[in-house]
């Protein structure tokens, strides 16, 4: 549905993005994650046809954004970082205006506005002036204007910024409810938001996409899944021999503690490896003093990807 290939954009002397490629399948929610200033908004602006890219291609529903800007604009619903609202209009009038400039046919306008109001929980506010709405409701109107013409593709730039926790949950639920019918790109610098709402995550750092995967896939891909820390007493050589022979064990590192015990850091592909390892060690006559499991969070992945200088992970 959305294909982005090697986009590049420079502002004067500063580089906005250097190489951004990803794709989103129909009905999927892609989380576009990155620290502030990484190039998220620039990428989204290129996709919506607001900014021209210096190099690369972006296709929405098969249409190249530079070749057919009007066609692309018709297929996109866009919520910029600050929701674009006319404070002097009522919610319903504003949505009708958006439906009209997006080219919804006259016979369908009222019905589509009603649907958007309904989906975003704005039914009670339809005749209220936008300037009288709270921030949470304004954000909903912002989302409503992005979906009113029922575009196949929606691009939401930081949709929960500045909302209180309850509103954040509501907006996330709203976005989840939109998936399936719509293909969605959700830009965010908030990790839990992305891991909770999105099917897949693309991490952008310094103008480059450094990883794309499912939230779970990203964890296992980068952290090697699960890590166990063990404190054991026994022959280090034997410990190493027992553990490396097990299925699912990736790496083992051993440290000698002053107390004479050995700490083992065990990287495994899955959590089920833990009990097997313990059983094998016990069978080999090694005394186990402590076992703990640490699972990497998306925060770890994110920090690792965005703080270490390194080549992009495949």
């Amino acid at each position: 549905m959305i294909e982005v290939e090697h986009l590049k954009k420079t502002y004067g002397t500063t580089t906005g993005i250097t190489d951004v490629s990803f794709s989103v399948a129909r009905g999927e929610i892609l989380g576009f994650l990155g620290p502030n200033g990484a190039g998220k908004t620039t990428t989204m602006r290129i996709l919506t046809g607001y900014l021209p890219a210096d190099q690369g291609e972006a296709r929405i529903d098969g249409l190249e954004v530079h070749e057919d800007p009007m066609g692309v604009r018709q297929r996109i619903g866009y919520l910029p970082e600050t929701p674009p609202l006319y404070p002097d209009m009522t919610v319903a009038d504003f949505l009708l205006f958006v439906a009209q400039i997006k080219g919804v046919s006259r016979s369908e306008q009222q019905q589509k506005v009603a649907v958007a109001l309904e989906r975003c929980g704005l039914g009670a506010k339809r005749q209220v002036l936008i300037r009288k709405l709270s921030k949470g409701f304004r954000q909903r109107v912002g989302i409503a204007q992005a979906i009113v013409h029922e575009p196949p593709v929606m691009i939401l730039d930081e949709p929960t910024v500045g909302l209180d926790p309850r509103q954040i949950i509501e907006v996330r639920e709203l976005i989840r409810g939109l998936a399936g019918d719509h293909t969605i790109i959700l830009c965010s610098h908030i990790l839990p938001e992305v891991s909770m709402t999105c099917d897949r995550v693309a991490i952008i750092h310094q103008g480059q996409v450094v990883a794309t995967n499912t939230p779970a896939g990203l964890l296992s891909q980068l952290e090697g899944g699960v890590q166990f820390n063990l404190e054991v007493a026994g022959d280090p050589g034997l410990v190493r021999q027992v553990l490396t022979g097990l299925e699912g064990v990736q790496t083992t590192t051993l440290d000698h503690l002053p107390s004479g015990l050995i700490t083992v850091h065990l990287h495994a592909t899955a959590a089920t490896v833990g009990p097997h390892a313990v059983a094998a060690l016990v069978q080999a006559g090694i005394a186990i003093h402590e076992v703990s499991r640490t699972q990497a969070t998306l925060e770890d992945v994110f920090l690792r990807l965005t703080t270490t200088e390194g080549s992009p992970t495949p």
Binding site: G49, G71, R73, Y78, T82, P84, K102, Q145
Partner: peptide
């Protein structure tokens, strides 16, 4: 208001 972005991304 930021509505220029709305107009500029509309057909």
């Amino acid at each position: 208001r930021g509505t220029l972005e709305l107009l500029a991304t509309s057909p």
